[in-house]
Write a protein that binds this DNA or RNA. Structure first.
Lengths: 207, 207, 207, 207
DNA sequence: AATGAATGAGGCTTCATTCAT
DNA sequence: TATGAATGAAGCCTCATTCAT
């Protein structure tokens, strides 16, 4: 009703706004990833190339922005982990999951910590369960088909996996061995920890 | 026994002051552990039962207090890990190390993170190297005597170990399984990851 | 007249901000002048009609503000003294210098003290030398042309002049005799102290 | 009653206390003179070699101590100025007064400022009038006997004199010329400013 | 009476959020 | 709608004063 004769302008504005929205999210990911969750709003706005007022038009508060990012990180993570976990062979699936998580960590840095650490229950009830379920399914499948050892302590295995991606160690590993090297090292380590003793030891070798 | 002939009166005030010093340190450990490193000075002072001025008489600044605690945590950790690492059998030693670290984490919470995370280089140069060395020595010994597998990726193993104690997962594990249960689960997991294939699988079982 | 073709809208915010900047400076001059250099930031902000945060947007710290004011006072003083010292006749020039300094003191109060007292070497190296040079030039000129006595102790004369404007006595004199009366009394006094004996005694009389 | 058999001890304690009293006053003079009136209580107590508690037993508050010192400075100053002003010849008397004031300034530093600046009306009503009266009497006497010029602006002359001792310039002069040189320079300057034109110009020369 | 550790009000400064332009 | 200047609550720290020893 209000934009009868200028759909193009109106659409353009929306496009601008949407672009700003994305730029703010990207900037926030970047800044939170590098500076940690205490980063200042001003730095995010600057990096996004907008004023703080604009940032607040898109997100109602600092916590609102953080929440949006954490949920987004969580969603992204969950989707990629689920996809990776679908890989046929359980050992390959675990490797794929670890590669995916390494990549997410590279992108989301400190945000991964919260998304993965099981502290987001107040943001998304069952958020952590969803992630856990993805891992659990994969591990159970591997145990069932004899790929993983029968006495594997699945919650402990998941805790260890989450720890590596939550502790900041990945950045160090990536810095020392590069992205592929870090993912390979992590994969090998965890495969050793969970492969059945009878399994071909070669399976713990990375590609 | 320690001060057999100590005069009681002249030194009493100092004893009070020393007691306050300890109470402040304890309160700070507690509050930093629970609230994280952003905790407020006032809360620490309150919990110690002293005024902020008293806290500042004992520690020159917020950062000074934090630094003291982190160094103390680091020292405590280092000492206990070295002691545990001395255990004869390499597998037993690894278990002892993990039990010790679990205990330190329980006491120092969030402070363990910094002390263990390799971010204290500006506080104590080579601080992280000292910790790493303690782990490395133990693992090399185990590899040398055939307890651990020959192809063990020692840096990765250490990274994973540090991660578990740095990520906050330990509190969750302790909450779910109790102190002994958590330490046992962690031990079992890491032993599985590093024991030689020929080793008695039963060794990965906790006591 | 000053900005004939200035666009009005785009620059308006800046004009507001600049106005605040000036209001803060003016308020700070006022408050420091009356309350001394220990005045509280809050009082300055209040008097400027802004919040403390705004004050800190314009000046990075209490000392930054003070520094800016002292340098400004010094610059103002130096410029006006130099201009007055240019007056043809040396006796008239001294009178003009004293009138100018009286006016500066009226405006800057306690700030004049620091600007004139030779304590700003860390803010502006040679700051005091610049002021001294302005006085010295004038006095030497008067001695050279026979207006001032040949044995005039120039450093002592300058010290006495600076003292009067540095000691707070000027405010009292102004209060008692008004601005013109105070300047005249100071001028007469110092002319008596430096005029050559042969000089027409009437020259020490003010206008 | 309580000290029947040990008058010596009792007297000794009083002597100790009195000694402390003096040491605190001396330390306070020293510290206030050097650091200015914002000096910290702790520094004074340290320099006096007593605890802050002892300082507070002798002076009810920081302001109480400051008040005592200012009044003491004022009394000392007044007494010495009066004595000096009694000198027969008015010119000699002015010189004596200036020497005395230089000496007081050397001893009391920043305290002289307040004692001389006429800001102590709330501490001692008419305090400033007493000082002014001492100067005024001397100057009137000189004018009456023809030593000083008839048109001397006595309040202005006094203001200038007070200024020199109030502005901190004396320390600089003393630093550059030594104690005797500074006093001589100040004397010469002020004598030039007030001596009668017919007077022997040589009288403005210092000893 | 002397000591100095303890106290806490009050100052300076930061930064999330608001709002006039 | 975008901007960024303005705001002020809240945290850190200092130091005059009190008080237990």
């Amino acid at each position: 009703m209000e934009e009868p004769a200028a759909p193009e302008t109106a659409r353009h504005e929306r496009a601008d706004s949407a672009a700003n929205h994305e730029r703010i999210l990207a900037a926030a990911r970047d800044v939170f990833a590098r500076r940690g969750l205490d980063a200042e709003i001003k730095e995010i706005a600057d990096r996004a190339g907008v004023g703080v007022g604009t940032l607040y038009r898109h997100f109602d508060s600092r916590d609102g922005l953080l929440r949006a990012l954490i949920l987004q990180t969580h969603d992204d993570l969950l989707q990629r982990l689920r996809a990776a976990a679908d890989t046929q062979d359980a050992a390959d699936a675990l490797r794929a999951v670890i590669h995916a998580a390494t990549d997410v960590y590279r992108q989301f840095g400190a945000l991964t910590e919260v998304a993965l650490a099981g502290r987001l229950d107040h943001l998304r009830p069952d958020g952590h369960e969803e992630l856990t379920a993805a891992f659990t399914g994969l591990l159970r499948r591997g145990v069932a088909d004899g790929t993983f050892r029968a006495d594997l302590d699945i919650p402990m295995m998941i805790a260890a996996l989450e720890s590596v991606f939550t502790s900041g160690k990945v950045v160090r590993l990536v810095a020392e061995r590069g992205y592929a090297g870090a993912a390979a090292a992590i994969s090998d380590f965890f495969l050793h920890a969970c492969l059945a003793a009878s399994a071909d030891p070669g399976r713990a070798r990375s590609t």
